[in-house]
């Protein structure tokens, strides 16, 4: 049986007919082409598929699309505002907290929500707060560095696709 689904994804109203057993992750990736959310396990153990549903982090692999009826869903693609990365994204880039990048979308979505609710965690609290997001490349060092720089308010927001700078002016006149 098909289900008429209405929700908002990254600020855009979406109306689709879906099968009720379709996972939110597949709806986002296959139906909407938002492939930023990743499937690392499909069982809620790795966190790579984390999205915000009405501002709360959820595993989109364990959520049916129809459960998001009427909700506002934010994926990693929706974190950029005014052509600037958000604080967590910017900190990840600057600290070298993204290596292969497959865990990064889920990690930045989770950390964005966690730090919004817990702006001043201890290192232990922070580590526990993001322990549901696995990363195999970094050993978490640079991720912790990035998140601490957010907590300390030391992040410079990074512009997406900045204008190129001219390297060297042409000399006056002909040579």
């Amino acid at each position: 049986m098909d289900y008429p689904l209405q929700l908002t994804v990254n600020g855009v109203a979406v109306k689709r007919i879906v099968e009720p057993q379709i996972r939110l992750l597949d709806f986002l990736r296959e139906d909407l082409g938002l492939t930023g959310s990743k499937e690392g396990c499909g069982t809620g153990d790795c966190g790579a598929c984390t999205v915000l549903i009405d501002d709360e982090p959820h595993h989109s692999c364990l959520t049916l699309a129809v459960e998001a009826e009427g909700a506002a869903v934010t994926t990693v693609e929706g974190l950029v505002t005014d052509d600037k990365l958000n604080e967590v994204q910017s900190a990840f880039v600057s600290a070298g907290a993204t290596q292969c990048g497959i865990c990064t979308p889920g990690f930045v979505v989770m950390a964005t929500a966690y730090l919004r609710d817990n702006p001043n965690p201890t290192d232990d609290e922070l580590r526990m707060g993001v322990a549901g997001n696995l990363c195999r490349c970094t050993g978490y060092d640079t991720i912790m560095t990035a998140l601490h720089s957010v907590i300390d308010g030391k992040v410079e927001l990074i512009e997406v696709a900045p204008e190129p700078q001219e390297l060297v002016p042409e000399p006056e006149g002909e040579l």
């Binding site: 930023g36 959310s37 990365l85 990840f92 880039v93 070298g96 993204t98 990048g101 990064t104």
Partner: peptide, 15 residues
Amino acid sequence: SRIDGVENVTGATKF
């Protein structure tokens, strides 16, 4: 920092 970093943190990198 990795030149592909911005792509990674925005979900733009295609795996």
